[in-house]
Design a protein around this nucleic acid. Structure first.
Lengths: 185, 185
DNA sequence: GTCTATATGTTGATAGAC
DNA sequence: GTCTATCAACATATAGAC
């Protein structure tokens, strides 16, 4: 057995980028093949269908966010964990203003599709909601469930509004407010 | 000149419904023709391209929300106007949990497209943000801009989360909180 | 204005040589 | 495992009879 090809990896990477930028429907397999430098016909050796490729993209995004969370979870202060999440989001403000929140837009676009692909993306949103809620619980907040929903919705919402108005400052302003809110708890 | 045909109207109505339920890309002209009972070829007498039909749908949605707002604006109490908006949103909780917020999802889907269609939908979101902000201003709130963004984002955000988790109760809970917040101002 | 038939283009997916 | 050529399906849009 020789060197392992990185083509599969490159395909997922290109698909992740293009799906977010142009949307699922407007990104053809040919687009992904070209962007990743893999010949069209060869794509189907790694992914039997486009749906399989979409599933791989969701899996990759899921792993990425869970890895971030694992890092944050090493911090003993749940308040600081939330602030880390908010800081990450602010750092992506330009991307969010241009193309929307990667998780939110993917859930929305996939919800118009059939299961099981949709539920995988939705599962990621649910995981985020639960992770955020857990931090409030560990802070001893009795209204942890409400605050968890409130913060998750605020994050998604400022993404939608910032994307519609094409203004990264909207993400900045709203998340600055959220950080103050959490610090003052 | 005889009776005016209502075909154009029926086409826009079907398109509005199907675009929201299935998404723009997954709704073909043939689908809209079938749903409205208009023969395929005849669609093009009323709308030269699919993009024209999309533009008509956005226009229709814009008129609908502006008409609602005109009614609410007759009320002298800006606080009550906001509560009316929130009540309307709660009444649509099932639709939102199933298909997402009509305005938010349309903005997001169109943003992946090219102008000028996208900017029309985005303009609607901006109009909503400004209308909400104006109510806070008329309430004498010095932080009206911040509250306007906060409420708009919260509304959009609970739509995204409710849609991902397919749970209308999420809309209910989050908007109940927002109503309390506004009443206590 | 209305409708059928069809042109035209693009996409997801496959066949089969290497 | 890799790649070219191509198929089959479907979408938008048009032609042209009525």
């Amino acid at each position: 057995m020789g060197r392992v090809s990185d083509k599969r990896e490159r395909l997922v990477e290109s698909a992740t980028k293009l799906f977010h930028q142009a949307g699922l429907k407007d990104t053809s397999i040919a687009d992904i093949a070209e962007d990743s430098g893999v010949p069209l016909g060869n794509v189907y050796y790694y992914f039997k269908t486009k749906e399989d490729l979409v599933a791989a993209v969701i899996e990759q995004r899921t792993e990425a966010i869970k890895n971030e969370a694992r890092k944050w979870d090493e911090n003993p202060d749940p308040r600081q964990r939330l602030l880390n999440l908010l800081d990450l989001q602010v750092s992506k403000k330009d991307e969010i203003a241009q193309y929307g929140c990667p998780i939110g837009s993917m859930c929305q676009e996939l919800d118009k599709e059939r299961p099981p692909v949709a539920s995988e993306a939705d599962g990621l949103m649910e995981w985020v909601l639960k992770w955020i809620t857990r931090q409030f619980k560990e802070m001893g907040q009795k209204q942890a469930d409400q605050f968890g929903l409130q913060l998750t919705a605020a994050l998604q919402g400022c993404g939608v509004v910032a994307n519609a108005l094409k203004d990264p400052k909207i993400v900045e302003r709203e998340i600055a407010r959220l950080k103050t809110w959490i610090k003052e708890m």
